[in-house]
């Protein structure tokens, strides 16, 4: 039986790790400033973070929170660590920003820095580059987290594809609306059984 060894939630300008509130941000209601505050809280030194779109920033921070003091690369080979995420709006948030750079023929300056993030699966690459993971990658678009589907997909990776750890969950950003619920699945470590109902509970609970 695979298990969930860590889980995080980022929502409503708050951050929870394993059910414990670790940041309640009140300074502004701007998502990027909030994400920067989490970045600083984590003591990260990764300048590329600031060039990312909000979706990648959110996913990167979520992974960082999950992996705090859990060096997966010391336990598993890079090829055995997968990243499987989902959301409802794909990369619509940055798609819209990119569109604003090209919609006016008189002021047509397509932004390369925005364009490179106009796919939702870029966040997977950013997490893998940061940590050196080389396992399976998938990003699914769903109206809401389909816990049965994502459970089946991840169990298949663990049982059939030689994966030993999976960073999984939901990372959604669309204008002012955002939510990240991410969890780390390992084959033998963790207090929570990796089951669809437990995934659903992580997604629905308020902490």
């Amino acid at each position: 039986m695979s298990r969930i060894s860590s889980h995080i939630r980022i929502e409503d300008f708050k951050v929870w790790k394993n059910g414990e509130l670790i940041l309640d941000y009140n300074e502004t209601r701007e998502l990027n400033k909030f994400l920067k505050a989490v970045y600083k809280l984590l003591g990260m030194k990764y300048m590329k973070f600031f060039k990312m779109d909000s979706l990648s920033k959110m996913g990167l921070i979520g992974a960082e929170l999950l992996l705090d003091q859990n060096s997966l690369m010391e336990k598993y080979k890079a090829e055995e660590i997968a990243v499987v995420l989902a959301n409802a709006s794909a990369s619509l948030d940055v798609d819209r920003k990119y569109y604003n750079t090209i919609k006016d023929a008189e002021n047509y300056f397509p932004s390369p820095a925005l364009f490179v993030y106009t796919l939702p699966n870029i966040v997977l690459g950013e997490i893998c580059i940061r940590h050196g993971f080389k396992g399976e990658n998938a990003f699914f678009i769903q109206k809401e987290l389909d816990s049965d589907f994502i459970y089946d997909y991840n169990e298949d990776l663990l049982l059939q594809k030689d994966q030993n750890a999976i960073i999984s969950g939901w990372v959604e950003v669309n204008a002012d609306s955002y939510k990240a619920v991410m969890y780390l699945i390992e084959k033998e470590e963790g207090d929570i059984k990796h089951l669809p109902n437990n995934i659903k509970s992580l997604f629905l609970t308020q902490n």
């Binding site: 060039k51 300056f109 397509p110 932004s111 390369p112 820095a113 490179v116």
Partner: peptide, 11 residues
């Protein structure tokens, strides 16, 4: 990518 942004900046 930064290089491309600098080209856009000049333009």
């Amino acid at each position: 990518i930064d290089a491309l942004e600098l080209i856009v900046l000049l333009d």
